[in-house]
């Protein structure tokens, strides 16, 4: 089941995807390939269907046409049973955590374990506490209810739940939205750290330019119902497209770039001094 493949091989392949609601078409013939072990950032203006794309991949929105292959298997042609087997290998962090409000954080984290596996209470407890601390929450947060947590903590708890089943791919819907800059930067570090240590593939919908600079290996820009540009940040920002130019060269885009360059410089200095 958790046969982890080679880094860099395609893990999600989307071909000619068309989605829409009513008479409105959201995506038209969209192609996107995500590689194992990367953090891919999905950006785009409001209403370009970033969240819809995420929902289409995890099976919450039914596409009108096209194919989506996860782990090399076509998820649109699957029976519900097969689809659930794939679902177990995906973790999703919804925008506000989407924690079950009637359960404590720890109960939230073990909810998928209870549902899918038969484990002893001790093992469940150990796994829950590991995921909770891995997500950067203190242990005493385990017995708190979601309504007692701050927004940032709810996101971390949501991430802990997303990681409960040891997913191969984690989907994050605007993970840093609503966090203060320090909290957002810590969350970025957490994602990078988890990617490194657990070998995760991360699909991240975000508006946060700093996140894009810091965390993402590749960036895909959604515009005009398609992926208009994809690649490392440096390549994407050179694309000749009015929205992309405005996005990366606007005042916020330049500020984020400046701060990330500065950071690289100072870390470079440090290395130089050590040598």
């Amino acid at each position: 089941m958790t046969q982890r493949g080679e880094k860099g091989e395609p893990i999600i392949e989307i071909e000619k995807l068309t989605t829409g609601f009513g008479s409105q078409i959201i995506h038209k013939d969209l192609d996107l390939t995500i590689k194992r072990g990367e953090i891919i950032g999905i950006v785009g203006g409001s209403g370009t269907g970033k969240s819809v794309l995420l929902k289409a991949i995890i099976g919450l929105v039914k596409p009108r046409a096209g194919s989506i292959r996860i782990f090399g298997e076509d998820v649109l042609q699957m029976s519900d049973r097969e689809h659930r087997a794939i679902d177990r290998r995906l973790g999703v962090l919804f925008q506000d955590g989407a924690l079950f409000s009637a359960m404590t954080v720890a109960q939230n984290v073990i909810a998928p374990l209870r549902e899918h596996l038969h484990l002893s209470p001790e093992l469940q407890q150990e796994i829950a506490s590991m995921k909770i601390t891995l997500s950067g929450l203190p242990l005493d947060a385990a017995t708190k209810y979601p309504s007692e947590l701050s927004g940032g903590m709810r996101k971390r708890a949501g991430l802990a739940r997303a990681l409960a089943m040891d997913p191969d791919i984690v989907f994050l819907d605007e993970p840093t939205a609503g966090l203060d800059p320090i909290g957002a930067a810590k969350f970025d570090d957490l994602i990078i750290n988890l990617k490194e240590s657990l070998g995760l593939t991360v699909f991240m919908v975000t508006h946060d330019l700093d996140s894009l600079h810091r965390a993402c290996d590749r960036i895909a820009v959604l515009a005009e119902k398609k992926v208009r540009a994809i690649g490392p940040l440096e390549e994407v920002r050179k694309t000749d497209h009015p929205w992309i130019q405005e996005y990366f060269s606007g005042p916020r885009g330049r500020a984020a770039l400046a701060s990330s360059v500065q950071e690289q410089d100072s870390s470079g200095d440090k290395e130089a001094r050590v040598e």
Binding site: A106, Q107, S129, I132, T143
Partner: peptide
């Protein structure tokens, strides 16, 4: 991350 936590 080995220290166990309370669930309920």
């Amino acid at each position: 991350h080995l220290s166990p936590c309370e669930i309920d």
